[in-house]
Amino acid sequence: MIDKIKNFYTQHKTLVILGLIVMALILPLLIQKSSIMSIIVKMLFYVILASSLNIINGYSGQFNIGHAGFVLIGSYTLAILAQLNISVWILYPLAGVVTAILGLLIALPTLRLRGIYLALVTLGFSEILRLVALNWTSLTGGPMGIKGIPSPWLFGLQSTKPHIYYYIVLAFVIICLFTSYRVINSKVGRAWMSIREDDHAAMSLGVDIKKYKAINFMFGAFWAGVGGALMAPFYKFIDSTMFSLDEGFNILSMVIIGGQGTLIGPVVGSVVVNSITEIFRFADEARLLVYAILIISMMWIRPQGLAGTSKSVIANRGIGSKKTNIFTRIFDKKGVK
């Protein structure tokens, strides 16, 4: 069925995209309840976050599981600078830039690492940032967090209501997907994919692996920072507990369920995972079990993710196949060059 949808999409590309955008634009007019609208806005946040992680994990094959760290930097940058009365509109991209610079700082010492070793570094990095945010009380408010983050003005309306804030996030989602699409279909994107597929071959073709890995980390971190910055004014309050490792895994699970290395995968992943979270809210902690079952069955039955094409080579690595799937591929590689 998914292949049929994909076929339809390839045949009527512009029509489908236009239709989706129109639907997205009129959505707030159809939904009256603020609570439901908040959930949809949340989904959009995660589309940006999952897409930015997909840039790193899905396209260049690095294994970052500490994505929450980048989100934290974006959120706190906005929250702290907003206290200085700087316009929130400027702070969105600025938070992205700050996070991208941090992404570069993380990338530089870890360029030689890959697979599970890189995963460990990013994990540790994410936790360090969370602990710093928790303990640096004078700057981050420590356990009290930062309250009263202002929301931007949009056409004379204060965008505190989810129905209005939705349009701001939607705009960023479209820009994020659009720029990602363009970068991926260029020299830079091809270089990323060549590193994911086979770094020795990439090197032999003159691809500067370190440079492109660093660019990749920066691009992913930029959008994670923007995503984080978008969240802060919407919740009006941030503290370090919002950026725990669980959050990082949550984003990762969206990428995996949606389909790594596809542009639309993180969108699907965000919608599916967030819907499950809301539907099973009554089950409280037990809903994590649903996640677990979903991720395991995805790796087993459809390792390429919901949006991955069944023509891909990974698709033949599901049940009954002795060939490994993409996860074991990542971990099989030697950790250090």
């Binding site: 091809r190 994919m193 060549s194 597929e197 086979d198 073709l205 003159g206 290395g261 891909s312």
Partner: peptide, 16 residues
Amino acid sequence: LFNFMTVLENIKIGFH
């Protein structure tokens, strides 16, 4: 080869 990419994409990386 870059197994998950088409032949043409493989060649395009050659032009990097």
